[in-house]
Design a protein around this nucleic acid. Structure first.
Lengths: 236, 236
DNA sequence: AAAATACAACTTGTATACAGAAAAAAATCG
DNA sequence: CGATTTTTTTCTGTATACAAGTTGTATTTT
């Protein structure tokens, strides 16, 4: 095969995405161009193009004359996440119910099968990735080029946040994951029926479940007062 | 000055953005790497990096082994635009009212001054760019990394759609533009007061005005039935 | 001994040269 | 004369070499 370079580029892209989503590459990690180009048999030129692409999608941050860095996740961005996610998720699922095609629905069912398998016998990474894949397909279904950039950006950090609570294995957590799986099934049904109201409601439910999990694990009480902050800072 | 290359890169980026926003480069236009790298004194390597960046932001489409192309605007994307814009604009202005800083408010006032000046004595391009700049600042104010990608994507096509109705000079259109300017002033006031409810309401009003304009000029009646389409296509 | 500066090693950014693919043009065949 | 295949040309993608910038270290100076 002579599309070596092209496939290696795709491999690199996929490798970086997965590594970032699963926190194997933690937020803030510096990426070494020389090392990566060596490891993937690519010269630095195409590698840097991949960097730019991933930066555009929100996986990486680029700083001039400094190494590329896995995008950070601060408490500020977490707050932004909580504000944006419910709205965008709702809109995406509503549109998915409107526009989904047969092959897309099949793809969604496949993704859900993989998710269930990961719940039974997979690692935390497997679960996060399978869940990410499921929601990624709903994004494709919506097909709205204006919403997708934000949706995909949200999915990145949702996977990363999720990794922190896919890890600890308490009984309640397993229960919640099984509930999430049930919601996925309901989402599929709503989309297949073209029932956008149901899809929107399920998006809210699914988000609330996820939100509860996140609050339990990564948020002590810092964001319990999210709305009453002073609106603007006056210097001097 | 020895940051020649860096500044030329920024110049090229800005040139392409402006050209695309003002429709001087029309949707679907092919970009010639050799010509552009020649014109801006850059080699193809940094030029292609700029292409990738702009593609990530939604200005360009990249196809492998084919020239970069100014992103298309079909009637499909127009429909998506109408679905996404009101929601995202509302959220952005609401957040802007919450989070705007003093310097940002000053920047917004400056942008509004420039917009007014463009209304008085500027070209259609000047108006579209000034309006784009105004809303761009509101995006900065919101500071939400998850909403900004979609918001900025919307602003691109909003400017391009706007160019089509900033051109014809009817009396009613001038009136509407002046109304838009008034709304800008009200938006500034709401943001400065930190009144997020007012900001959200103004976003809706401002959008409705813009929507009326757009419908008048570019939409005959194709999108008057936006919600009742068949939800999914079943082959065979 | 601490701080500052100069130097060296390394990393990022750009240019050029080359390889491969698509498009255009020319030639051959029906 | 038209259609199709082959050749040529043009443009995209990649690699390598080089320039510029950054960081760490060592030496010098106070």
């Amino acid at each position: 095969m002579k599309d070596d370079a092209k496939s290696r580029k795709a491999e690199l892209t996929e490798h970086l995405k997965v590594s970032i989503l699963t926190l194997r590459l933690q937020p803030g990690t510096d990426l070494d161009e020389a090392h990566l180009s060596d490891a993937f048999g690519l010269s630095r030129t195409p590698l840097r193009e991949v960097f730019r692409q991933l930066a555009g999608e929100g996986y990486l941050d680029l700083r001039t004359n400094r190494s590329a860095r896995v995008s950070e996740m601060s408490y500020t961005t977490l707050r932004d996440f909580f504000l944006a996610a419910p709205m965008v998720y709702g809109a995406i699922l509503r549109l998915a119910a409107q526009n989904a095609t047969r092959p897309q629905i099949d793809a969604l069912k496949e993704a859900q099968q993989a998710f269930k398998a990961a719940l039974r016998s997979g690692s935390a990474e497997d679960r996060a990735l399978a869940n990410n894949r499921f929601h990624d397909v709903t994004g494709e279904m919506s097909g709205n080029v204006y919403l997708l950039p934000s949706f995909n950006r949200l999915l990145i950090d949702h996977a990363r946040i999720g990794m922190t609570f896919y890890r600890p294995q308490t009984a309640k957590m397993t229960e919640n994951l099984s509930e999430a799986s049930n919601q996925h099934d309901a989402i599929i049904a709503a989309i297949e029926a073209g029932d956008e109201a149901a899809a929107a409601q399920l998006a809210e439910d699914h988000w609330n479940l996820s939100r509860d999990q996140i609050e339990l694990f990564v948020m002590p009480d810092a964001l319990d007062v999210p709305m009453g902050v002073p609106p603007l800072s006056k210097p001097a």
